[in-house]
Design a protein around this nucleic acid. Structure first.
Length: 425
RNA sequence: GGAGGAAUAGGAUAAUGGUAAUCCAACGGUCUUGAAAACCGUCGUGCGCAAGCACUUGGGGGUUCGAGUCCCUCUUCCUCCGCCA
């Protein structure tokens, strides 16, 4: 949600931004409604002023035991008029709101301009592509032959896109999540949160998934709840409709959650294996910050996510997403992509976004700059730190040996009962 | 799932249907070497340079000239009963 004042002052720039972001919105229509609304407000507030004053007169007359019938009768017309105007105003505001909630966030000045994901800019690389002197297996072969990922049985009990982890696979998953949480809580200063995995509509509106991406989520109609697509939703919404104190900023949360995505419309894309699944695990990082610090906090958020990839010894690159590829709510976003040798491509394992005050406006999340000062909207950020499904792919494929086993990255060994190699069972 | 009760500003508390009073906390000031105390002021939101105006008693509707108050409805919390990992 954008500030109406900002839209009034920069209509052309915002119209262009919505086009660049591939979600054009009729800003001129919105401004037309805005000026109609202004006129109505002027008229109705004047009438309300009359009503308030005459009501006081009625009270005075009654107190003095005088007749107020005439005054009361004359006020009936005014009240009728107010009622009509109120309805008219509400109608216009509803129309405005319907447009406003579909305006995407405006990209930050440092966000590159482009037409599609091919125009994303590589801003950093770490490590090098590992070199192998034997024929590589992909994670499906490795996972199956090692007996740690079971695709067919997952399909049997739930459906395609619900693989089952077993034995060392399940342990690896658990080790990764614990490792992520330990790094972020102990080393990076985040407070751990264990959120609900089902949320209501208001929460999804707050972070921007609704109304635009309804079809991407699992919905439980009997209770009007949605399965979360990311822990970003419950965690950012923890402070919805709140005013935070300056001393509590920046708020830094990390949270494990399962993530549920229907992936509607992505059929034919990454259908095989563990690359695009309906349920995966992720540790999410969420920050609520003072606006002037948000871009510094964005860089440090990216650093925190990168530190995990470095510790795991995975080759990766960092993309700055172009405006066309930026999500609805984001002003700027870095994608972290880990190299998967078996696939021969980079896999997105983290998305670090700065939403500025876009989400904060939608969820009414404010902070008080100082004692006695008026509350202002905070800035919110989040990033994966990290998502496991694809990290497991990268690990299996990067650390595979000629014998078909997989070496365990050193930092994970203490989380895996000191096992150093995953062998077939 | 059933039966009761409750919700007023950061907290606490008032208001015969007549337009939200008061206390505490917080903040600014006076006084003071400094602090405390005392005293004065600010202390829900929006618009406005301002004067001011409008809005605000958990959310949404209704009755009324006028609703914190009456009616309907939803939400949350508390107590009890039932069910349950």
């Amino acid at each position: 949600m954008l500030d109406m004042q900002r839209i009034r002052e920069n209509p052309d720039a915002i119209t262009q931004a919505t086009i660049n972001k591939k979600s054009p919105v009729a800003i001129d229509e919105l401004l037309e409604l805005d000026s109609r609304r202004k006129n109505i407000i002027q008229e109705v507030e004047q009438l309300k002023n009359v009503r308030n004053e005459r009501s006081q007169d009625v009270a005075r007359l009654k107190k003095e035991k005088k007749d107020a019938t005439e005054l009361i009768d004359s006020m009936k017309q005014v009240s009728e008029k107010i009622k009509d105007l109120d309805i008219e105003q509400k109608k216009i505001e509803d129309e405005m709101y319907a447009i406003q909630i579909r305006i995407p966030n405006v990209p930050h000045s440092t966000t590159p301009h482009g037409n599609c994901e091919k125009d994303n800019v590589v801003v950093a690389q770490w490590g090098e592509k590992p070199v192998f002197n034997f024929k590589l297996k992909d994670h499906i072969e490795l996972g199956t032959s090692l007996g740690i990922i079971d695709f067919p049985r997952g399909a049997k009990i739930s459906g395609a896109g619900f693989p089952v982890l077993k034995g060392m696979g399940a342990l690896l998953e658990r080790a990764l999540l614990n490792f992520f949480l330990d790094i972020h809580t102990v080393k990076n200063g985040y407070t751990e949160v264990f959120p609900p995995f089902l949320v209501n509509e208001a929460s999804l509106f707050g972070t921007g998934q609704l109304p635009k991406s309804r079809e991407q989520m699992y919905y439980i109609g009997d209770d009007d709840l949605f399965c979360i697509p990311t822990a970003e939703v419950p965690v950012t919404n923890l402070h919805r409709d709140e005013v935070l104190e300056m001393k509590d900023l920046p708020v830094k949360y990390c949270a494990y959650s399962a993530c549920f995505r229907r992936e509607a419309g992505s059929y034919g894309k990454d259908t095989k294996g563990y690359l695009r699944v309906h349920q995966f695990n992720k540790v999410e990082l969420v920050k609520i910050v003072e606006p002037s610090t948000s871009y510094l906090e964005h860089e440090s958020l990216r650093n925190d996510a990168e530190s995990i990839l470095k510790a795991l010894g995975l080759h990766y690159r960092v993309l700055s997403l172009c405006d066309a590829d930026l999500s609805f709510a984001a002003a700027k976003c870095y994608d972290l992509e880990a190299w998967a040798p078996g696939e021969g491509k980079f896999l997105e394992v983290s998305s670090c976004s700065n939403f500025e005050d876009f989400q904060a406006r939608r969820m009414n999340l404010k902070y008080r700059p100082g004692a006695g000062e008026k509350p202002r909207f905070a800035h919110t950020l989040n990033g994966s730190g990290l998502a496991t499904a694809r990290i497991i792919v990268a690990i299996l494929e990067t650390y595979q040996t000629e014998q078909g086993t997989v070496r365990v990255p050193e930092v994970l060994q203490k989380y895996m009962n000191e096992i150093v190699e995953i062998k077939p069972t």
